[in-house]
């Protein structure tokens, strides 16, 4: 499965580089057009549907951790170490 995904991503990336080096064929132009549409809807869709599924899984797994890390950093930057700021004075 992962080979298929990598292949899909590779074809799309290589088509972009091919177009930039050798001029755009009609097919590539159409593909680029579709990609621009995808880009306008959401940036992660640039790699097509196989990658999208993996992106979704990664998003679900990573977002709580990311929010957790950002807020912890934010608290530390503001000199406040979580609950010690308010209730449990030591």
């Amino acid at each position: 499965m992962y080979r298929k995904v990598l292949k899909g991503c590779f074809i799309k990336l290589s088509s972009i580089s091919t177009a930039s080096f050798f001029g755009m064929t009609r097919e590539i132009r159409d593909q680029m057009h579709r990609m621009r549409e995808n880009l306008s809807t959401f940036s992660f869709r640039v790699f097509g549907h196989e990658c999208q599924r993996y992106f979704e899984v990664a998003y679900l797994l990573v977002l709580p951790v990311a929010v957790f890390l950002i807020t912890t950093m934010s608290l530390l930057i503001h000199g406040c170490t979580s609950v010690t700021c308010t209730t449990f004075k030591t």
């Binding site: 929010v67 957790f68 807020t71 912890t72 608290l75 530390l76 406040c80 170490t81 979580s82 609950v83 010690t84 700021c85 308010t86 209730t87 449990f88 030591t90």
Partner: peptide, 21 residues
Amino acid sequence: DQGFSYYALMYGTTDQKSLSR
């Protein structure tokens, strides 16, 4: 109420002091 101002900070509860407790 103290609740949200207190628990909004709960994201940071694994800092060193809370972990110590």
